[in-house]
Write a protein that binds this DNA or RNA. Structure first.
Lengths: 345, 345
DNA sequence: CTGAAAGCGCTTACAG
DNA sequence: CTGAAAGCGCTTACAG
């Protein structure tokens, strides 16, 4: 149980030590303490030790806010994503976190829920924290958001898809190419009548790009084309099962379903199994993402593996490189994708 | 493409407007601008409008760092969790994010990877951001971490499990009670010889508490007890399948397996299905967490649903309440759990 | 409802 | 390698 009630806007307790207190205790100037803490190489070993001891004795906690104001740069990296319900973004964030954490940066997290107004709001707010750089999912933003980031002048990495018009750096893959690859695979397997099934393709425009790449490939091959089956709710395995049932009620039913993501597709496989629907004989099923579980269901799910962790890591590394002014390297990295063929097609 | 290369420690571009610029443009004092932005009720409607126009014209972005230094309080809420690989923490973070976001706070994320040294490091760093409060997973910390937070004097919420010795506020459930409930369920079903299977029970001490509650209940009922089957790698569905195979090779094999979490248990069900192992006739399988997918596999997985989203939301609400000095309410909330019985047992 | 003064706790040049 | 001065861009009392 704590002893003292908190009071709004208070300084941190009466005992809260500052640089000055540490300096006094160590018998040096505050500047020296600052250097001993932030740039130890610039200070003699003797002083470094005295400072460290004073820090420990006083329980000194650096005030990052004051440091950031004085230097006009903080150690936080804002990351703006459209969703946390989707394993894809979570794994990407993990990759980012691993890398920036190791370099001593902290992650400030913004969730736009696929709303570009909210995206702008987060980014504007985050810039007020003087971050040394910023990571944002997607290359599609409001013009004012682009303008804001371009004026800002610090490194920006846009992740997830490669886009033609990136603000600064860009790490991702071509979702249209991935959709086309799946179309060609399904046609090559002899599944001539293919339905695309997904959720909110307008908001989740990367899923929309997969559909367009898929549809274009069908057209190029002279295959039959259908309008996509869509639902205006978030993706989930249960929904994928329901969409399977709905698809099989169409007249004529499709011979294959390409789901916008593995959440839906895994749900479809589990539902087929439960209801005794033969996959792929009656209907083939394919997904996108390459979640671990796609390899564990029966039959195994054919999918496209996206290197999510790598996108996060590479994006973070490029950002840190730009912050540290290392040799720049390419401004755009296409991490590619891998078609994983299993029993479901 | 941006026009200007970034320079370390620069102020944000030559055009970067400050409060003063906005004030000059609006023809008022900087204090008035600050109030119009942060406490609009204190300013006349006329001035509020003039300020808003000036802000828009100049593209002014508030410097949160300066604000936080002057007021000794920032709008960031640090959240410290042991893992991002686990859906449980991700959903909890989502619940927190929803609530704090709506109240205008930003989420600063720290991942300890189940390392209490690292936990201390994150917390010490985060306190330097002058947050109004903090959320941390778990009630088990190093003594110096407890001391730091108690001295700090601002609201702290410990989430996930209810503990007897919380620092300030506490929201979670009793993992020992959950483990005991599952033991009693399995015994009642007639599964007399039960194996507990999990990963890193020393690090993931909540899973350890589930085991201890489970084991104590077995003892109380006079049932046979086994040492738990453990692996020193992170949980995953694939591993759950492997552990099923390993368990069935024991002599004698168990009649039921209680997995430490649904990731493992779902993997076991999928593996059983693939390999033609009859569940629950040859071996019953149970999990913990109540992930969506646990209801979609065949047979459905018996599990204990933990209200993860609610833990996040309630934890965040209690924190915001304490920050705003609302009526305190209980310092400890046990959100409970629900045994979900399905075909696997 | 509005403003002039002081200060938050650091770091950045500039000297030595 | 070490230090004295100035300042980062706000907000908090204190007046009026």
């Amino acid at each position: 149980m704590r002893t003292m009630p908190a009071t709004s806007g208070q300084r941190d307790g009466p005992g809260a030590a500052t640089l000055k207190h540490v300096a006094a205790r160590a018998g040096v100037s505050p500047i020296t303490v600052s250097r001993a803490l932030n740039k130890p190489a610039m200070v003699s070993a003797d002083l470094r030790d005295r400072v460290r001891r004073a820090v420990d004795e006083l329980g000194y906690v650096q005030n990052r806010v004051a440091g950031a104001l004085a230097s006009a740069e903080s150690r936080v990296i804002p990351v703006v994503v459209p969703s946390l319900s989707n394993a894809v973004f979570v794994e990407t964030i993990q990759g980012i976190q691993e890398v920036v954490q190791r370099a001593g940066f902290q992650l400030l997290l913004g969730n736009t829920e696929y709303d570009l107004d909210r995206e702008h709001g987060w980014i504007a707010t985050f810039l007020g924290w003087s971050p040394p750089g910023l990571i944002v999912a997607g290359t599609r933003h409001q013009p004012r958001t682009r303008a804001l980031l371009e004026r800002w002048g610090r490194p920006v990495v846009e992740i997830m898809e490669v886009g033609s018009r990136s603000i600064d750096m860009n790490v991702g893959l071509s979702h249209a190419a991935a959709g086309a690859a799946m179309a060609r695979h399904l046609l090559a397997r002899g599944h001539a009548d293919i339905l695309f099934a997904g959720c909110r393709l307008d908001q989740d425009y990367r899923a929309g790009q997969r559909f367009r790449g898929f549809d274009r490939a069908l057209a190029e091959c002279g295959a039959a084309r259908r309008r996509p089956l869509t639902r205006d709710v978030p993706s989930s395995p249960a929904l994928g099962g329901d969409m399977l049932v709905a698809a099989l009620r169409l007249d004529p039913p499709p011979r294959a379903i390409f789901y916008a993501n593995d959440d839906l597709a895994v749900g479809a496989i589990l539902r087929a199994q439960r209801d005794g629907i033969a996959v792929p004989d009656r209907v083939a099923i394919a997904g996108f993402n390459g979640l671990d579980i796609s390899g564990l269901v029966t039959p195994g799910l054919t999918t496209i593996a996206s290197p999510r962790l790598a996108i996060g890591r590479i994006g973070a590394e490029k950002l840190l490189g730009a912050i540290a002014r290392d040799t720049p390297g390419p401004r755009r990295v296409d991490v590619g994708f891998e078609l994983v063929v299993r029993g479901s097609t």
